[in-house]
Design a protein around this nucleic acid. Structure first.
Lengths: 107, 107
DNA sequence: TATATTTGCAACCATATGGTTTCATTTAAC
DNA sequence: GTTAAATGAAACCATATGGTTGCAAATATA
């Protein structure tokens, strides 16, 4: 079964879980209170997030605190980073100049 | 039907399409040659990418060139950006110092 | 005009997904 | 020791997903 970070963050509930957990570690029970779904559904999301290492477990007694593991998010960053300058429209003057030179040369 | 950018980039074929198209606009036929799937399958992917505005169509005769629209990728960037400093482990000395002062003060 | 090319759409299919309910296990509290 | 709380796993279900094949429409080419 394919289980990667991109698929993990595709679900809005999982993105919300990530955002909550990034602030501070939480138990599944505490998390479930933030959503309309059942605790078990949240647990399934946590399983998926764990499988792609977006979260880590820390057991204390019968409670399990889920921590955010930001490193795994880097894969997403690496994918979109090459496109950043395409949506950020601020090009410095050197870039514009180089682009101009390139076009005129071609012509 | 939910159709957002996160779901769009969840599929590896669609991510590959995006990467190809970002280099230069392509027709569905040209795109399909890069994959094992049928042209129609690629067409379905393009439909999804169009719906969340990750690509734009430009018709010339009977051919349709698909362009990459980087702006729509910003939504993903905005989501992961807050976590960036959590995975980038390079903190400058001032940050470390401030952190230290904070802890000692608390104690 | 007749034919070939490019494309999107519809119907269908196997599997994945996200949810539920039920149950077993472990640990805390009484 | 008995009961309650926290959790994960399994079974089940409706729907979404990604693929296929077949077909129709529009445009280029002969």
């Amino acid at each position: 079964m394919r289980r990667d970070v991109f698929q993990a963050i595709a679900d809005p509930t999982r993105r919300a879980i990530i955002t909550l957990i990034a602030l501070h570690a939480m138990t599944p029970n505490a998390l479930a209170e933030h959503f309309d779904t059942s605790r078990q559904a949240v647990s399934k999301h946590l399983r998926i997030l764990t499988e792609c290492q977006l979260v880590k477990q820390e057991q204390t007694g019968r409670e399990i605190y889920y921590h955010f593991n930001a490193k795994s998010m880097k894969e997403v960053a690496d994918f979109i980073e090459p496109f950043r300058q395409m949506w950020e429209e601020k090009f410095d003057k050197l870039d514009v100049l180089l682009k101009k030179m390139k076009t005129t040369k071609k012509k």
